[in-house]
Amino acid sequence: MGNLLNISSSPHVRDKSSTQSIMWCVILCLLPATVVGIYNFGLKAIILIIACVATCMLTEFIWQKAMKLPVTVTDGSAALTGLLLALNLSSTFPVWMAVIGSVFAILVVKQLFGGLGQNFMNPALGARCFLMVSFAGKMTSFTYDSITGPTPLAIIKNAVKNGDTSSIADILASGDGQTQATTSVINMFLGNTAGTIGETSAIAILIGGIVLIARKIISWKIPVCYLATFAVFVLIFGGRGFDITYLAAELCGGGIMLGAFFMATDYVTSPITPTGQIVFGVLLGILTGIFRIFGASAEGVSYAIIICNLLVPLIEKVTIPVPFGKEGIKDGK
């Protein structure tokens, strides 16, 4: 009888989803990419993932205990941050550095700004950039199949910079000329190449991303606009004309898939308005294209997402939707 009449003030939310269920669902959707990463990089990848997740959760627990705040470790957001950070690291990355990065992600980027929902940038990406600045050498040394070599993206970038006009497939097959690291676009799609633990396999990330969109945990707008804008940008400014293989390699290589589906769509640091999400995606695509094609490094996803995270309040301000029935009415007249 007690549940027959439920008296509460608005909003009357009848959906069963909670922060907890959403976070654990995102973690489940990340599992395909995680499993491929572990399959590719073995025990080192497992140790890194466990270290990052455990440190993130422990940091959040200790901070909230010390500050006498309600402990929210079980909502899974800290675990998700740790998992995303680990997936963004090279498998040869030292564990103690990953631990420092995890502490930075939770303590500085998230908790100092007020915890979940208050952070102005994605904690995992903030920590990735912190580690990139601090330990650039370790962050950009990638090993696949016990061969240390450049990522496919770096190979392509170098070749294009040197004016190599042979086809992308040939460039990838010949590697960088010094090590035996050879690859192909198919390998980049499946994930059998050098790279960070979670970013190599485009197909595994796509599976997780499509599940997220199908279950309506994320909207299609940000990833689709992001990837489409980036594709157009690469075709126009890539310097290779309408080269589908080049486009496929750029889309499957580096962190763009992981970024588009799992980082850019973070609830806290992406716009809430539908128009804003489209603007956000387009901006991300343009910035990533600029960083990758005109920048010094072959990668640019993390910096593009962080810059757009900072622009979110502005984007939201100019894309406030007009309430139903107020269309065509201006300035309240």
Partner: peptide, 13 residues
């Protein structure tokens, strides 16, 4: 060495 702290953001922190 954590190079971050020699650079400008480290000063703020």
């Amino acid at each position: 060495h954590i190079t971050f702290f020699v650079l400008a953001p480290g000063a703020f922190l």
